[in-house]
């Protein structure tokens, strides 16, 4: 399978195998008019299998959301066909409106206008809790 290199854009590398579509959807990449390649189950020396997303355009990506979904992702910025910058992600302290609190006793369950905000409470174990009721976030079943 041949996917041509991109000239100006972003490559999201080292995505955990199976997570590419989730990231594609959360970053709303389906709304872009440029080429977006989703590579699933690519061979990886480091990970065994990995997913890769190639976006053929320089766009603003919410790195906090990306880190929250998968902090192992590497973000490569490509300019004139060359690697301009490589970023490793850090877990964000706060995540807004990515997850919904599932606790039926939480105030967010009855007040629809409230933002769903989660705070990192345990970095080592990647635990996020709802700022209102402190219920632990269920991040991703695959993880």
């Amino acid at each position: 399978m041949i996917i041509t290199p991109i000239k100006d854009g972003i490559v999201l590398d080292h995505i955990k195998a199976g997570n590419a579509m989730e990231i594609y959807n959360i970053l709303n990449l389906g709304e872009l008019e440029c080429s977006v390649a989703i590579i699933k189950n690519a061979d990886s020396v480091k990970m065994g299998k990995k997913d890769v997303l190639k976006i053929d355009k320089m766009i603003d990506i919410d790195l906090n959301i990306l880190a929250f979904i998968d902090a192992g992702i590497t973000v490569n910025i490509i300019k004139d066909g060359k690697l301009l910058k490589r970023r490793h992600l850090e877990l964000p302290e706060i995540v807004k409106n990515v997850l919904k609190c599932k606790n039926p006793r939480c105030i967010t369950s009855t007040e629809q206008e409230l933002q769903h905000i989660f705070k990192l409470t345990d970095k080592e174990n990647r635990i996020y809790r709802c700022i209102y009721c402190e219920t632990k976030a269920k991040i991703n079943k695959k993880r």
Partner: peptide, 10 residues
Amino acid sequence: RHPKEGAPLV
């Protein structure tokens, strides 16, 4: 006092 958790924070 409120029956819903987090209401005072709101």
